[in-house]
Design a protein around this nucleic acid. Structure first.
Lengths: 101, 101
DNA sequence: TTAATATATGAACATATATTCAGGTATCAA
DNA sequence: TTGATACCTGAATATATGTTCATATATTAA
């Protein structure tokens, strides 16, 4: 078992920072929270997160590029969902710190 | 047990985003990694993280304000350490996603 | 076809943020 | 005291980033 310090070369630190930066926006957090229950299309997500559809679309692209969410197209609609349960775990882990802090 | 969506009101989403944004910088990640083994003073941290002492000091203040690290003064030196093991856990949780992703 | 809906995209703008620089305080040694 | 070391801080600057706006594509309905 390696220590955190041994595991974290510069390249890994950059990737890790990118991941956390992606989570570091309250709009994207609201989107992920909405997706933690069930999949939603863009319009729904925009309404749930209180964002314009354009802003939502930009955020969704960002989240997808970071492999936090995935999409599925059905007719005119594109349904987004969390990529896996690990995302939920990561957000929950942060939540614990916020509550306990 | 609440779902993520139920736990995350707007205020909580903002706090959570602030936490993740604090972790969303590779310099701060390197600092936290260095601190995961043992405490260090500012000059050491600057050298370990490859930063100027001024930049390091700015980052340390940020990390301390977010309660991720704590400090202890001894003579001319100020020693920093992780605030608790939960910080290490949070970083490790992100690391898993980076590796597995 | 035409019109409406759903989503995506790039440019522009405004704000946020990381770093440097200059200077400040505090501690210790000579 | 004087000088050196360790750390901190605010201003300035350069870069990053979120949102809006205009527009484009794709799908469906009429």
């Amino acid at each position: 078992m390696n220590t955190l310090n041994q595991s974290l070369n510069d390249e890994t630190a950059i990737s890790l920072a990118e991941l956390f930066r992606t989570l570091g926006d309250s709009a994207r957090i609201r989107i992920l929270a909405a997706l933690s229950d069930e999949e939603h299309n863009v319009s729904n997500l925009a309404a749930l997160a209180g964002l314009s559809e354009s802003a939502t679309s930009h955020h969704l692209r960002h989240l997808r590029q970071m492999r936090l969410i995935k999409s599925r197209k059905e007719g005119r609609y594109v349904y987004y969902s969390l990529d896996d349960d690990h995302v939920k775990q990561l957000v929950s882990c942060g939540l614990e710190h916020v509550r306990h802090g």
